[in-house]
Design a protein around this nucleic acid. Structure first.
Lengths: 144, 144
DNA sequence: AATAAATACTAGTAAAATAGTAGTATATTG
DNA sequence: CAATATACTACTATTTTACTAGTATTTATT
């Protein structure tokens, strides 16, 4: 039950975008350097984020990416949802046609409950909360 | 971020053991029939459960399995922990030597929080709670 | 003692998911 | 027009998942 690197890298990328106060878009090449993640891989990660409407891209020279909403309005639930297509821990939560036991399934209710707990927790971590966590950290040079 | 079939099947197997009030051990062949899971596969699933001390086996003819603790003392957290070796959603939560960013990592704290939320939720579902859910269900013939 | 019924153990394997890489096309700036 | 960036498409090695198969061992029953 591991989170994919895509979700984790996407989270770090989003925090980098949130940290960038400049009006110009931030380029993948810079995020790649700071986060030590292949630029090519980042360029894949960025696609679902854009499709989910979390970020906007600017093409061409001096292009890059920026958040499309305020840092208060983007949570890690949004990010993980975008990357994984939902955080459901079993397929039948997403598509109940996958299993005809659903309506009478006891464990189904448990997995649903667990999924909701994850969602609630992730939703609490909006980008502004994460920035607060970083700025209140002991080490001012801390990584994200 | 899906739960493995092993964990899900193990949960259903454990509920079957919990439902069995007889003093004799329950055999895989019966669980296999009732749950529509290959007996051979169940025989693999049973191994981590036994190693985790959740069930006991009786070998030989008329052998089988039974819970080694009371239904109040076994939760789905125990089951998932046994099957997956922990519910951590990132490896670094289990072994912090895996990443040198750990001490200064903001997202680390999020993943830790999410993992704890999952653990708390799973721990609430002890086998006796699950049995209550089944018996209070509308359909007396409901599957688990 | 022999047989049947069960678990225990070891190994293998097909399919899917993961974690990337590579290359070309397209858009924009200067 | 050249340089710089994203956009898109395709491929691939590795790992994980979800099994299956076969043999060995233990125990109850006859």
């Amino acid at each position: 039950m591991k989170l994919s690197t895509k979700s984790r890298y996407a989270s770090r990328l989003m925090i980098r975008l949130a940290m960038d106060s400049s009006l110009d878009p931030l380029q993948l090449n810079e995020i790649s350097r700071k986060e030590n993640i292949s630029e090519k891989y980042l360029s894949q990660i960025v696609i679902p984020l854009r499709k989910a409407g979390l970020i906007e891209s600017v093409r061409g020279a001096r292009g890059g990416y920026k958040l499309s909403r305020s840092i208060k309005e983007i949570s890690l639930l949004d990010v993980v949802n975008a990357m994984e297509g939902g955080v459901e821990i079993v397929h039948c939560l997403k598509d109940d046609k996958l299993c005809d036991r659903t309506s009478s399934c006891t464990t189904y209710r448990v997995w649903d409950d667990v999924t909701k707990a994850m969602e609630m927790t992730l939703a609490r971590y909006t980008l502004d909360v994460l920035l607060d966590m970083i700025s209140s950290s002991d080490d001012p040079m801390s990584e994200i």
